[in-house]
Deep mutational scan, measured.
Amino acid sequence: CEICHEVFKSKNVRVLKCGHKYHKGCFKQWLKGQSACPACQ
């Protein structure tokens, strides 16, 4: 996960249209302050 830098250990992964992958919880937190993929912006 590019947000928390932890390895994906479960199926709790969100894959965006751009192809980047994040933990669902991390991405949900990210969206509270941002509106785009962290890696693409």
Rank of each mutant, 00 (worst) to 15 (best):
N12I: 06
A39M: 09
V7K: 11
L16A: 15
A39Q: 12
H5R: 14
G33L: 10
L16F: 09
L31A: 14
H23E: 02
F8Q: 03
C1T: 00
K32I: 09
C4T: 01
F8M: 14
S35N: 08
Y22H: 05
C40G: 03
E6H: 03
K9W: 01
W30A: 12
S10Y: 04
A39K: 06
Y22F: 13
C18K: 01
V13I: 15
Q29I: 06
H5A: 13
K28C: 07
G33M: 07
K32N: 11
I3A: 00
K11S: 15
E2G: 09
P38G: 07
L16Q: 12
E2L: 07
K24R: 13
S10G: 08
V7S: 12
K17S: 11
L16M: 10
A39H: 04
A36N: 10
H20E: 00
K11T: 13
Q34Y: 04
C1Q: 15
K9Y: 01
S35T: 12
C1S: 00
R14L: 05
A39T: 12
C4S: 00
H5C: 14
Q34G: 14
L31V: 13
F8N: 05
C37F: 02
R14D: 15
C1W: 00
V7C: 07
K24F: 13
H5T: 15
Q29D: 14
P38K: 12
H5K: 15
F27L: 14
H20D: 01
C37I: 01
K28Y: 10
H5S: 14
G33D: 09
H23P: 01
S35L: 08
K11E: 13
K21P: 08
R14I: 04
F8H: 03
K32S: 10
K21A: 11
F27E: 11
C26P: 00
E2Q: 10
Q34R: 11
C40A: 03
Y22V: 15
H20L: 00
L31Y: 07
K17L: 06
V15S: 09
G19R: 05
Q29H: 05
Y22Q: 05
L31E: 11
C4N: 02
C40F: 02
I3M: 09
R14W: 05
S35M: 14
K11G: 08
G19C: 04
F27T: 12
K17V: 12
G19F: 01
S10D: 15
C1G: 01
Q34H: 11
R14C: 03
K9G: 04
G33V: 08
F27N: 05
F27R: 10
V7W: 05
L16W: 05
H20M: 01
G33W: 06
H5Q: 14
A39P: 09
C26S: 01
K9A: 03
F27G: 13
E2A: 07
A39V: 09
K28N: 15
K17Q: 12
A36G: 15
C4P: 00
R14N: 14
C26G: 00
V15Y: 03
E6F: 02
H20K: 01
Q34C: 13
K28F: 09
A39N: 08
H23C: 11
W30L: 11
S10M: 07
R14G: 05
A36Q: 08
C40V: 02
G19D: 07
E6G: 13
K32Y: 05
E6K: 15
S10T: 06
